[in-house]
């Protein structure tokens, strides 16, 4: 199939970015990233600089891909990362616009690569259970309700890709932060530090300059792991409870 790509090119964070147009021949069984590989091979053969994009596992779990395809993070398919998106979703003659994730807290590094270290900072503010190696009791000492474990997993499925922030018109990181908080809150081991965790992580989230949630819900729609927006409501509740009832 013959495609026209409209790709965002930006030398670095300080430089102005602009779109660059490329014609490319693709096959339907290619993944979206393989299509970009073909583009890059072509660019390199012309001795020019290829399009920088982040990718690693290419099986939808590492959370590296960070591009917005025709206005949607990870493209049009629900529950699919860019690397799992295949070209059969497009037809010959299509023009595809590819941009980086956009949010002030995700500054562009080059082309389609953005800096998501603000997510690490949020986790470092409390996204853990304070247990040293060797201190643990037997794995079966504390039974965990089966549904709770399953709910915890649903939130823990987050791959930290940042599509939620990219999709949010407010550039908010509430879905990411709430998924982590709820993952740990659902488990007895995580409940102990819950109140301080909620406060510290939200404080850090605000400090990183993310926007304020207005419950648009785009985050949940675009999340490649389909983590629902319920997480945000649960975090709001946790936060209000911890602010008003705890020291």
């Amino acid at each position: 199939m013959q495609l026209t790509l409209k790709v965002w090119r930006q030398k670095n964070n300080k430089a102005e970015g602009k779109f660059e147009f490329h014609k490319i021949q693709a096959e339907e069984h290619m993944s979206f990233l393989e299509m970009l590989d073909v583009l890059n091979e072509k660019i390199v053969s012309e001795k020019k600089e290829p399009v920088a994009f982040e990718h690693d596992c290419r099986e939808g779990i590492c959370g590296s891909c960070s591009m917005v395809i025709n206005g949607r993070p990870h493209g049009p398919q629900a529950g699919t990362t860019t690397c799992q998106l295949h070209m059969r979703a497009y037809k010959s003659g299509d023009t595809i616009t590819i941009e980086p994730f956009r949010a002030t807290s995700f500054p562009v590094i080059k082309d389609l690569v953005v800096d998501r270290s603000s997510f690490d900072n949020i986790i470092q503010a409390g996204g853990y259970i304070s247990v040293n190696t060797g201190q643990a009791v037997d794995g079966n000492a504390i039974p965990v309700n089966r549904d709770d474990a399953s709910d915890a997993f649903d939130s823990a499925a987050c791959i930290g890709c940042g599509a939620c922030v990219a999709a949010c018109p407010n550039g908010s990181a509430m879905l990411f932060t709430s998924a982590k908080i709820n993952h740990l809150e659902k488990l007895p081991q995580g409940k102990i530090e819950h109140n301080t965790r909620v406060k510290n992580m939200i404080k850090q989230m605000d400090k990183e300059g993310f926007g304020k949630c207005s419950n648009v819900g785009a985050c949940g729609v675009e999340c490649p792991k389909e983590i629902p927006m319920d997480n945000i409501a649960a975090m709001n509740r946790s936060y209000l409870t911890s602010v008003f009832t705890k020291e």
Binding site: I129, T133, I142
Partner: peptide
């Protein structure tokens, strides 16, 4: 160790 860390 993993259970104590919150691995679901």
């Amino acid at each position: 160790q993993a259970v104590a860390q919150g691995v679901p």
